[in-house]
Computed example of a mutant assay.
Amino acid sequence: MRLLHTSDWHIGRSLHGSDLLWAQGQVLDSLVDVVTAESVDIVLVAGDVYDRAVPSADATMLLDRVLVRLRAAGAQVVLTPGNHDSARRLGFAADLLSRSGVHVRAATASLDEPVLFTDRHGEVAIYGIPYLEPVVARHELGLGGGRSEGPLSHEVVLGAAMDRVRADLFLRPGVRSVVLAHAFVGGALPSDSERDICVGGVDLVPERVFDGVDYVALGHLHRPQSLTHRMRYSGSPLAYSFGEAGQQKQAWLVELDAHGLADVQPVPLPTPRPLTMLTGELADLLADPDLHLAEQHFVSARITDPVRPADPMRRLQGRFPFAVHMEWVGAGRPADARSYTDRLRGRGDLEVVDEFVAHVRDREMCPAERELIGQGLTAAAQDERLS
């Protein structure tokens, strides 16, 4: 049996305000091509299908189109919600969808009820564990009632979920098994585009929690990586931050034989529009002939001019039309650690404006500018007294 492990589609996400739905459509359509070329039987989507709990109409239409195409290509689909999804919304009509070969496993209460598939070697049980928020999941998993019993970690709730999975597997001797889970497993490397799922380290889940199954298809972290041969993150199909620039995005092609996990191979995914980070003075970036490829990339620029240039983003987009982020770092003058109140105490209006201008453009006002500002402040004070 051949499985395609993917996750973190985040349909509807943008990049610094730039719509990515067209790029998501392209890369998700490429999964359909993989299903056809590799004779994939089942596509596993390990959470964060959407980018928000209430997705837009366009986002839901894209998911509908992709699921229809995956089924038409011959693969069934098993998907679970992540921390960005609403489990109840994603699970709408789950029973009806399962009849068409799309299996949405969004209910905590039934996480130990696998989707069963059959090949020439027998049965494969696929368990979908939805994202488990400890405070909510504790009740559904029978782990206690209130705050007085102490905080629960992701390790505790996922451990309880896996205990249920292993108990069900005990009653299915010889059945091969796969688990989908959305979690931060210890030893994995995060990116800067994931949303924190907890505070203080209690989101970390040790590998041993997932003992006892043939393959663990993980979601949540956007960097593709292998924790063990049988436990992997597919990563997101697109780069969702400039910290992921240059990453080769992928899915995992998983093969099961009569004895369990036989092989896992990476499947590279296309990059509809690469991400590039540029650093330098604005005039140099606009004139450098070696940057011609970046003209078709999403661009994040760090402008190092000693004085903030006029209208830098518009000028940057004149050459790099897909520039979506710009930061002026200036000459790097040391930051003032004083509070806002301390910086204003005992200062006149002109001194405050002078410091503001120096902060914005890293250069103090010249005498002519200071005189003009002073005249304006005096006139404003006179108008205020007259009123």
Rank of each mutant, 00 (worst) to 15 (best):
D211A: 15
D196N: 04
Y215K: 03
F242M: 04
V209E: 03
G186S: 15
V216R: 06
R232D: 06
R223T: 09
A188V: 13
R223Q: 10
Y215N: 02
E207H: 13
G243W: 04
E207W: 06
S241M: 06
L238A: 00
S236L: 10
S191V: 07
S191N: 05
A183S: 08
R223H: 09
L189M: 13
G246W: 14
I197L: 08
H220C: 03
P224C: 08
S241H: 05
R195L: 01
V205D: 08
E244R: 07
H220G: 02
L221V: 03
S241A: 10
S241R: 06
G246M: 15
R195H: 04
T228F: 13
A217F: 14
L221H: 01
L238K: 01
V216K: 08
V199E: 01
P237K: 09
A217E: 14
L238G: 00
S193F: 05
R208Q: 12
P237W: 12
L204P: 00
P190D: 08
Y240G: 00
S236E: 11
P206N: 09
S236P: 08
Y240F: 15
H220E: 06
L238D: 00
R208G: 11
A239D: 04
Q225Y: 07
E207Q: 15
G219A: 09
G212P: 12
P190H: 06
P237I: 03
R230Q: 14
G219R: 12
V209Y: 01
A217D: 13
V185L: 14
G235L: 15
G246D: 12
S236A: 15
R195F: 00
H222M: 07
H222L: 09
V216I: 15
F242V: 02
P206D: 14
G201F: 11
G219Y: 13
L227V: 07
H229M: 12
G212D: 13
G212M: 14
H220P: 02
F242Y: 06
P224R: 08
A183I: 00
S193H: 03
V213I: 08
V202A: 05
R230T: 13
L238I: 03
G212I: 14
L189D: 12
A217L: 13
L238S: 00
Y215L: 01
V205M: 05
R223S: 06
A217G: 09
F242P: 01
F184L: 12
S193G: 00
G219I: 02
P237A: 07
G201E: 10
A239T: 11
Y240S: 02
F210T: 01
D196V: 04
D214C: 12
P190E: 09
